[in-house]
Structure formats: structure tokens, C-alpha cells
Amino acid sequence: MPSAPSKLYSDDVSLLVVTLDTNPFFWSTFSFPFSEFLSHVLAFLNSILLLSQLNQVVVIATGCNSCTYLYDSSSDKNHGSTTGSMPSLYSDLLHNLEVFLAGDQQLAKPRVNAAGGGAPPPSLLSGSLSMALCYIQRAFRSGPIHPQPRILCLQGSADGPEQYVAIMNSIFSAQHSTVPIDSCYIGSNNSAFLQQASYITGGIYYRPPHLDGLFQYFSTVFATDLHSRAFLRLPKSVGVDFRASCFCHKQTIDMGYVCSVCLSIFCEHHDKCSTCGSVFGQAQSNVPSSTDRKRKA
């Protein structure tokens, strides 16, 4: 289905890039079954395609070792193997997901053997966001007329602070190309990364409390195209967690040191900025002495 020039893209035609969290460690411990989740998502994707003939859906899997494109509604490579009970969208997507999971498992590092109780590895959200943005860039460059792109992150696993810089870079590049990042976070705590992503790019962040009605949330909140959003009152993010991760230990911090040259964030004092190499002056060891010095001056 190549984009023929005769296609009339109006302002409410969407290119929806969905990143799907396929972190096995999350799903195997989460109360809401993955199969249920998938049925809601599949129904939602289908309804997006039904909303307009020109709508386009791309699904990207966010694994913990790799990411991949699972489905592209404009691609020719879809098998179209309509088995009795399933539309081709579903069967293709599920088939690709199986292949992806097998590959992802092979990439898994041996450290997972320490199954005793380590925290589950986070999903590679930064990777899937980058892939989504790459896809959208291709759409932007395909010609002057293209569908309105947006990204929807379906995320469940907790944030990986070590991906902070990569995710923030993706967020800013999305902001730069005015691509909103919507996020539907189904985990138990709010995701600071996704909150910031949606806040900065002007997307919607929502954490649905009733997961059995997931489809309803999808269709009410996340199905709205960018044009219609101007007329609708959608959930607004309140209480965005703007905390950053330090560059040295990848920990989420409330307060820290910031390089005055490149704005890198550190949780403790360093002699030299690890990012730009600027040499810092003496740290003020304790507050009283510093005020002392000021008073003497």
C-alpha cells in the first residue's frame, strides 16, 4: 500500500506509532495477564485503522534486550494469512511478536540466572522511542503531505534510570519535530520518564486505574487525532515527576551537582565533568564555613 499521491491527507489522518512493552519479567509478575492486554491493544489498533482509511499504524516491540518493528499497516510484507478466526492484522502481529521474543531471549545476558531476587531488567524504552522517531522522520521526508504522526507508549515495567540520557534525547528530538508522545502506563507507580515525555512533547500521560476497561481508555483518550485534540478536554498531567537521573551512577536524584558548561547532572562532586571534561573548582565542603567566608569578605 504505497502512499499514492492521489491520497488526500486531511488534518485528521494519523500515523500512530505504538511501542509495546514486552518485558517478560514484568508481565510474568503483573496481575493483569498479557493476553488480556494484547486483546485490548489489538482491538484498539483495529479501531484506529477503521477510523480512517488513510490512518496508518506501526507497532514496535520494546523488549529488554532488543526492539523491533512488529507491524506496519502500510507495509507490503504483511502475510495476509487470514486464518479462520483472526484478521491479518492480529495474526501478523502475533506471529512477529513470537519471532521477536525468541530473538530477544537469545540476546538475554547470563546475569538473569541470578534469579534469586534482583530487580527485573527494564525495557528498552529509549530504543523503541528512537525507532519510532526514525519511522516518523521517514514519513516527514516522504513528501510535503503526510499523515499527522504521534507516538503512543504502552509501558508497564519500571523506568530504567540508566537510559535517562537516551530517553531525554528522544523526548527532545520528538519535541523538536513536534511529535507528541502519548503514554499509557499500566504499572503500579507512575513513570517519571513517560510523564516528562508527554509533558514536554504535549502528549497525554495517563495511568488507567481499571485495567479491565483498558480498551475504553484507549478509545476515549488515546484514539483522538491531533486535530481533534484542540477541541477536546483530555486528561491533563498533574504532578509530573521532573527528577533527573545522575550521569555518574544513573540514580534518580532530587538534588545534585550540575556542570556549568554542559549541564550534565551528577549526584556527587567530581573534579572533572565526565561529559565535557571541564575542571571544577573546589567544592564547598560544609555550609557554615562558606557563610563564614562570605561574612568575612
Partner: peptide
């Protein structure tokens, strides 16, 4: 943190089972 007590084998096979399930029974 949610403690993960499953090995990667178990976790991946759990996910695959879910997919089989949805493939078999549909939405």
C-alpha cells in the same frame, strides 16, 4: 522494587503461552 523471582526461561515461556492462548481462542 518488584522482586523478580522467575528465571528468564520461565518469563519468556510465560509470555509465549499468553500469545498461544490468544492465538488459539482469539480476542
Amino acid at each position: 522494587k518488584i522482586k523478580c523471582s522467575l528465571s528468564s526461561e520461565e518469563a519468556y515461556s510465560f509470555l509465549r503461552d499468553s500469545i498461544y492462548k490468544i492465538k488459539a481462542s482469539g480476542l
